[in-house]
Design a binder for these strands. Structure first.
Lengths: 127, 127
DNA sequence: CTTGACCTTCCCGTGACTGGAACCTCTATG
DNA sequence: CATAGAGGTTCCAGTCACGGGAAGGTCAAG
């Protein structure tokens, strides 16, 4: 299977798939014309990667998860730990963004937003 | 005032302050020894930048906000628009992260996390 | 005079791609 | 058979907002 079809089937841009090969996440075979030749197992890996990235796992997390996925004798505790750590990160990002939203929406609602120069937002940002 | 003191007073790393000079956000004077010489107005600008960045505004947003801040005849509506757009972005980031959290926490709680290889997290990621 | 803190510039690296140039290969059509 | 166009290849540069570290100049204290 060529990269275009894989791209369609996984939803990943061809550029991304090439990048994943570059960094060793997938290793498709090569045809005589130097085209990449993807097997079903490559497509599954790439779909897995797409899902993991979609959940915000870093590439290195993905690499670890992929290794565990391929390891039939893995301990599910290892997977769970990675996921839990990531969950904590996500939660702290959410908290940070919510704090931003709170401050910012206060400022926005305090600002008349008309032609006059008086602006509580700028005042807020100034300190 | 030297960069070290400015760094302490604004909470911005010296590296960041130099970077902000590089991209034209501040333009401190120079002393004979080639050291940067910051005036109070530079410190205020940098504090403003620190606050705006802390609320997640991009550098280009900060540049625009700074220009408006310095423009005594600005319309507060311009400021408000930038802030509102940014608020929308923040909210969509929060929504994205919350969706990740929902899926991920479902997976984590479905996973026993012991020594056995059976793992709903990997199953979920596989499709 | 030396030590050590502070300052300078310069260049490379980050994460996870994305865009683009220059070029090769396959397939369908005139 | 020539050609056009779609798809493939490699490689290099850029993104964003800095951070690390090298190599060297400057200043105040002892």
């Amino acid at each position: 299977m060529n990269i275009g079809e894989v791209s369609e089937r996984t939803g990943l841009p061809a550029k991304t798939i090439r990048y994943y090969e570059d960094i060793g996440l997938v290793t498709p075979q090569r045809a005589a014309n130097s085209y990449r030749e993807f097997r079903e197992s490559d497509v599954h890996k790439l779909a897995f990667l797409g899902n993991a990235r979609g959940l915000g796992f870093s590439i290195e997390d993905c690499r670890a998860l992929l290794t565990l996925w391929e390891d039939r004798s893995r301990a599910s505790g290892d997977v769970r730990q990675i996921a839990k750590d990531h969950l904590v990160e996500i939660e702290s990002k959410i908290a940070g963004l919510q704090a931003m939203r709170a401050t910012l929406s206060d400022l926005v609602s305090a600002c008349a937003g008309d032609d006059r120069p008086d602006c509580p937002i700028l005042k807020g940002l100034a300190g």
